[in-house]
Nucleic acid binder design. Structure first.
Length: 844
RNA sequence: GAGUGUAUAGCUCAGUGGUAGAGCGCUACGUUGACAUCGUAGAGGUCGUAGGUUCAAACCCUAUUGCACUCACCA
């Protein structure tokens, strides 16, 4: 027979098709989209988690009879891809190649890495339907993107404005607030003395503190708080900017904090967010002293500083300003870094396109009534973000992306859905004498991603009313604002309603020590390597088992090992069953023909297990569902039932036990299918000759659960005693005497149960005693065990009795709890009395 | 600075007011025909700290400390 290692090896070779490619579109009952991976490289383990969670749910639905169309795709991811392609053409730059040739290079890159991502997704054995795959820059997707822009523009929700934004000097583009990551670095705080144009009360200078002295060339004022007594007399006076001797006024502004720095702050409206606002309110000019690559430039910058980077200029100023520097302090401060480029960002005023998100955010808040977010604590974050929504800058000064659908025609602006339409509009408006020039910039990647739930439907010519909203969305919590929020906003605007009925946010996969996986830390776990070595089921179960909603997963070899052991356990279970049914496989079994309580019991456990998993799935508690199936398979089925079944297979109950094994294996395979689809499909096909389909409804016959408790109780007692003494037979005595279970007990425990009276040591069990036939020497060890048990039970009893004797408890506790406690007390009392009786006999 | 989450066994983590749980690790025993990639048993916990609510708190509330994350923050 095939062993597990061979099975894994064989399955690598064969591509298991898990959906029926010929399935008619009418047979689908709903749709979901795969969050499109970036075409920047390889799938990482987070993608695998994301994909497996979706596939889990898709397969769950399938076993319930609901077919979900799952559409794959990839994202062009503007900045990230452009950076990589630029790196790949070094030492040439994109300027050297020109826009057209550079774009060809990016498209080449796209083809290569999309193919790579697709083949890696396929190796995860997930049920994506590849017939409908999309790329965010496909031309039909572009039409939808342009159409959305057009609609927003004509609804006055898109506008062009000059605003201060973070500017990436390496990529030479504006970036959105969400793409800024702050980092603590060591820097210097310069205390610079600005000379007053005329002395005032003996003062010749006003001192300001700054970490960015190089921006002084753009200073337009010195501001102090109006209630700051130290500077009261200086307000309205003028100072000179050191080096350039340009005169600027001392003004007051409420936003200056008296306790910060020296209380006096240099106002540079061109290069600081606060200063920009102060400048605007005080009619100060905003001058830009940095060019797009972050080098000093312009008429306000002294010649010897023109062309220097901020850092170089700062260094040079440290010596050049000698006479003006009061002192310098070492400080740690936060600097804004570009998420992708990692370079220091500069606040810079530029003309950009913005989406006015206010009204859409309001609708997105209302959408919460119809859209469930799991886990629900993310609702708070979502609300908080929507309530503090900022205009969304959607233009990027990049080459790779959807070119902004705006055409310039002299001083006229034409917003259109295509070049042709723009042309047409130019003709209509008598603008033909100008050359039509499309905006050079591209749209933020997230703008096109935000349309994903419906463009995947419309561009595939699928019926929107059937597939939109999507059934659910599964994604990492890190892109709640980047993506989920924007899908809800734009989806609501373009198509109305909500884009998906449920949102499940999973955590990030971290390394064993809870650190983020990154190439630089060399702690990246490659999912493809695990798939290659262990099979996709192992990776899948390892991830699902630990995926608590919203929480990050610490992932290491332990997780893999645990999942591998589980798969091997199932493999061995399958081996056992295959061996024991020996060709007579029952695919349909009339459960009413099952008579033995042991068999009926496992059927009922199976049913319970299935129902519990169902409950978990409703709430996306995949980790709990995984524990339940693990526990059922390992403990209930393999460790208890199977051991008993070994006896039944050699008894008069052989045939019905084979039937039971078949029913259990068939249904277990179906339950396991969403967790470990490859192995469970294989088992199902091999034993029952067909693919897994819908879950069967099991109508289990009634059975005597007391008998099961009896068997377990005797066996547990025997095992407990076996750890201290050796014996080969016991006698059981009680009112209820389930003789028909003796065989089972003997088989599982490995001792014989005799009915004739014997002398031995009495040991209490669930419902009576067992008499252990054992020699005198060992009795003390057993006594010790019993004394320990006695003290444990007594303590329990005392505590519980105290509770039951409390009037307040009786008055206030619900009836069911009172009932439980009194039952428990009766049980404990029984146990204790049994032990007392035994102990009394010791004395005789 | 504001917010969110989190603290439970040696480690990694589940836990739904009413008997404290799992995997790994550890100790002891056991290869009986699915599985040593295993089985059985055991040890190991004032559930971060301090209050409060409740008949009853790991769970609810308040405060506090540590950690993680999100947002804001370059004087």
């Amino acid at each position: 027979m095939l062993n597990y290692a061979d099975f894994i090896k064989n399955n690598k070779m064969e591509h298991v098709s898990l959906f029926d490619e010929s399935m008619d579109i009418n047979e689908y009952d709903g749709l979901i989209v795969l969050p499109p991976p970036n075409i920047t490289g390889n799938l990482h383990i987070g993608h695998a988690l994301n994909a497996f969670i979706q596939d889990f749910r898709v397969r769950i639905e399938k076993t319930k009879g609901k077919n979900i169309l799952w559409i794959p795709g990839t994202d062009h991811s503007g900045i990230a891809t452009q950076i990589l392609v630029e790196k790949s053409i070094l030492p040439l730059t994109r300027m050297d190649l020109g826009r057209e040739i550079f774009m060809d290079k990016v498209w080449e890159w796209k083809e290569k890495y999309q193919a790579n991502i697709y083949s890696q997704l396929k190796s995860l054995n997930i049920s994506l339907n590849w017939n409908f795959a999309k790329f965010t820059m496909d031309s039909d997707v572009q039409s939808e993107v342009y159409d959305t822009f057009y609609k927003l523009y004509h609804a006055d929700l898109i506008y062009q404005a000059k605003k201060m934004l973070y500017w990436d000097t390496q990529l030479e583009t504006a970036v959105s607030d969400l793409e800024v990551k702050f980092s603590t670095v060591k820097g210097k705080m310069f205390y610079i003395k600005y000379p007053l144009t005329e002395e005032c009360n003996g003062q010749h200078f006003i001192t300001v503190a700054t970490t960015r002295p190089e921006t002084m060339f753009g200073d337009k004022a010195i501001a102090v708080n109006p209630s700051d007594d130290r500077y009261r007399d200086l307000v309205g006076k003028k100072v000179c900017i050191p080096m350039t001797n340009i005169e600027i006024p001392i003004i007051t502004d409420e936003r200056c904090e008296i306790s910060k720095g020296t209380g006096a702050v240099k106002v540079t409206p061109g290069h600081d967010f606060l200063d920009f606002d102060i400048g605007k309110d005080n009619s100060l000019q905003s001058v830009d002293i940095l060019d797009s690559s972050g080098r000093l430039s312009g008429k306000f910058v002294p010649k010897e500083y023109v062309g220097l980077s901020s850092i170089d200029a700062r260094e040079k100023l440290e010596t050049d300003l000698m006479n003006f520097i009061d002192h310098i302090e070492d400080v740690e401060h936060q600097v804004p870094l570009g998420e992708r480029s990692g370079t220091v960002l500069e606040p810079k005023v530029t003309m950009q396109w913005f989406v006015d998100t206010k009204s859409m955010a309001e609708k997105a808040l209302e959408a919460l009534d119809r859209m469930n977010i799991f886990p629900d604590y993310f609702v708070k974050l979502y609300k908080n973000w929507m309530n503090n929504i900022q205009p969304w800058c959607i233009s990027r000064q990049l080459w790779w992306g959807h070119r902004i659908p705006v055409w310039y025609c002299g001083d006229n602006i034409i917003v259109a859905r295509s070049q042709e339409e723009a042309q047409q509009k130019a003709i209509e408006n008598n603008l033909v004498h100008y050359t039509l020039k499309q905006d050079e910039d591209v749209l933020d990647t997230w703008f096109s991603s935000a349309l994903w739930p419906f463009v995947t439907v419309t561009t595939n010519d699928l019926p929107l009313n059937k597939f939109y909203p999507n059934e659910f969305l599964v994604t990492g919590h890190d892109i709640l604002f980047f993506w989920v929020a924007r899908m809800v906003m734009l989806g609501g605007f373009v198509k109305g309603g909500i884009p998906f009925k449920e949102v499940y946010l999973h955590g990030l996969v971290q390394d064993d020590f809870g650190k983020k996986m990154s190439k630089s830390k060399n702690n990246v776990v490659d999912p493809m390597k695990i798939v290659d070595e262990e099979g996709s089921d192992v990776l899948r179960f390892a991830l699902l088992y630990h995926s608590v909603p919203g929480k990050n997963i610490k992932f290491g070899d332990k997780n893999i090992e645990h999942a591998r052991h589980f798969c091997i356990k199932i493999w061995n279970l399958y081996n056992f069953i295959k061996h024991n049914v020996d060709g007579t496989v029952y695919t349909k079994v009339d459960l009413s023909s099952i008579e033995h309580d042991w068999n009926k019991w496992i059927l009922s456990e199976l049913q319970t297990c299935s129902a519990e998993i169902n409950d978990c799935v409703q709430n996306w508690e995949i980790h709990r569902a995984s524990s339940i199936i693990y526990h059922f398979t390992w403990d209930v089925l393999c460790n208890w039932y199977l051991e008993g079944a070994k006896f039944l297979l050699k008894s008069d109950f052989q045939e019905e036990t084979i039937k039971t094994l078949c029913v259990v294996m068939k249904n277990l395979a179906t339950i396991l299918y969403p967790f470990i689809p490859i192995l469970s499909s294989f088992i199902h096909r091999d034993l029952f000759g067909k693919n897994i389909d819908k879950m069967e409804m099991l109508l289990c016959p009634d059975f005597n659960y007391d008998k099961i408790l009896f068997v377990k109780s005797v066996i547990e007692a025997v095992r407990f005693c076996k750890t201290v003494v050796t014996f080969s037979s016991i006698r059981y005595s009680s009112e209820k005497n389930y003789q028909d279970m003796y065989g089972l007990i003997e088989k599982i425990s490995g001792i014989s149960v005799i009915s004739e009276h014997v002398d031995g040591f009495d040991y209490p069990i669930h419902d009576g005693f067992i008499t252990i036939v054992v020699n005198e020497d060992a009795i003390d060890l057993l006594k010790e065990k019993i004394i320990k048990k006695y003290s444990e039970l007594s303590e329990d009893y005392k505590r519980l009795l105290a509770r039951q004797n409390s009037d307040e408890f009786i008055q206030n506790a619900p009836r069911s709890v009172l009932h439980d406690v009194s039952n428990r007390l009766i049980f404990l009392e029984n146990e204790i009395n049994k032990i007392k009786k035994i102990m009394k006999m010791w004395d005789n």
